[in-house]
Design a protein around this nucleic acid. Structure first.
Lengths: 288, 288
DNA sequence: CTGCATACCGGAAACCATTTTCATTTTGAC
DNA sequence: GTCAAAATGAAAATGGTTTCCGGTATGCAG
């Protein structure tokens, strides 16, 4: 099933004036359309009902009703985004709005993701002799540790370094065939950049998970761009952690598939050792 | 917005015979309903159109059209969940399916969340003299560190302890007014349980983020139940990290709101010190 | 500038799906 | 068995959607 909004994007140039008004309305207030009849939509857009019908046909829908159904589907995630600002201070509204933010952050990240860089990164990582994860500061160091946690299970020699001095020292020991995954939310971690430069002179490949067009990205061989707007409420935790975590998971999954049997064998061993000492169910998750 | 299927579940016992037929049809072939008119649905179910209208009203919908829109939404979420098994090995399909898994994990967690325990936990944490985060193993230790990362910013004395021996030692030093947040994905971390027991004898309040009805939950004063089914594909990272992270964020936000000005002042200080030493934009996110 | 062809749009009528009304049937209690 | 209440469907009424068609704008050629 193709997505209504992407169809719209595609045929936008061919649209007439009235149809563009409808397109704008669809984008700005899809929820209204879902809850309104064709006459309401027509009136609000200042066009006639037949024009609305024609607009729906253009988007590949049989009828206005079919169109409405499709709008309902694509905006399901979207309406959640609208509630990203909590309706009230009531805890359950806050929970809803955090959930919306999280879902939105993940969806946007996935949407903006450049698969070619992801693939290039997965290729590099899956054959790395040593994988070093760099990151400093709340989110970035968490991601760095998480990278270590995910990749050592796949049989890769992995180390997480979250201390600038140690990053520089680690960099000094690296050589051709080694890979660094450098995470930086701001993209401006200059001390880390120094370590990356050093590592590159010794032949390591640098993969950056960071904002594009910033120092960290500029010094990387492969950049996976993650560029989320930060929320305005200082009391709210930032959503970028979810974006970084999502990319980490994607990389881990792709690398696991590339390494196939070896990854499976290592995961099995980890699980076996855990269940041996900790008396867990066989079905228990890895990694508590 | 309430979920149609959960409403259905709730009122199922009160339904009449014809309505049950419709309920069964809705569950078995929602897609058909989305693409059909009321007469088609009526015919297929062997009932009359008015009965269908009444059925929609019972489910809280204004009209059949409104009902159809809602069905479209829930089934869309459903198909997303179904695509959690990637359509193919193509990286972008895998990305989509990971995204679907996480969105689903987060939504389920939010749905199942017991707000009363969350509130009780937020109350306890916001007045804690010392906050100790316990956790061991991949996800749980990550969450433990993350709790430290989030709460120290709010002006709480916070420490993360991810080592069993240290947990026991930490527990021995705790007293009334102190709070422990214990994370355990499996809920069976027996060594941690020992530390929790010790801490309780010295008067600390224990909050557990874990599966219900397992040792860790049984030894907690407040349990926030997080109970996600684990995926079957061993190469896939588990989704429980997102669930735990979501709950952590929610707690952090609620505590931040309770602590109000003090939280704001501490966040401002952290930001100020960072921008002082690191030459960041003023608009930069906290916590890179 | 004019005339023509084309595309676009809206009014009104036709059409069709949905809903309401109301009579009938079924169910269940006494 | 009888009655009341609930459930159901037939048919009419309603209201929303689509089709048809004519008017208007736009662009192009002469």
């Amino acid at each position: 099933m193709r997505d209504l909004l992407s169809v719209l994007q595609q045929i936008e140039p061919d649209l007439s004036k009235s149809e563009r008004i409808l397109a704008a309305l669809l984008r700005s207030d899809a929820e209204f359309i879902v809850n309104a009849g064709i006459t309401d939509v027509a009136e609000r857009a200042g066009v006639s009902p037949p024009t609305v019908t024609r607009f729906c046909r253009r988007l590949g829908c049989e009828s206005y009703t079919a169109f409405k159904v499709q709008v309902a589907q694509v905006t399901f995630a979207g309406t959640r985004y609208l509630t990203a600002n909590a309706a009230s201070d009531a805890p359950s509204d806050i929970a809803d709005s955090l959930l919306a933010q999280f879902q939105d952050a993940a969806a946007r990240t996935r949407e903006a993701l450049d698969m070619e860089s992801v693939l290039a990164a997965a290729d590099a990582i899956s054959t790395a002799k040593l994988l070093a994860a760099f990151g400093a500061g709340g989110t970035s160091s968490m991601i760095s540790d998480e990278i270590q946690n995910r990749f050592f299970r796949l049989g890769l020699r992995t180390v997480s370094v979250t201390d600038h001095a140690m990053q520089l020292m680690q960099a000094a020991t690296m050589r051709t065939g080694d890979v660094i995954v450098a995470s930086s939310v701001s993209g401006r971690n200059l001390q880390m950049v120094r370590a990356l430069e050093a590592a590159k002179t010794y032949g390591a490949v640098v993969i950056a998970l960071t904002r594009p067009a910033r120092p960290v990205a500029d010094h990387a061989d492969i950049t996976i761009a993650i560029d989320l707007p930060e929320g305005e409420n200082i009391l709210r935790p930032s959503t970028s952690r979810y974006a970084f975590l999502f990319v980490t998971d994607l990389l881990a999954t792709l690398v696991a598939m590339r390494r196939g049997d070896e990854a499976r064998e290592n995961l099995r061993r980890v699980k076996y050792q855990l269940s041996n000492t900790r008396d867990l169910d066989d079905k228990e998750a890895l990694g508590d």
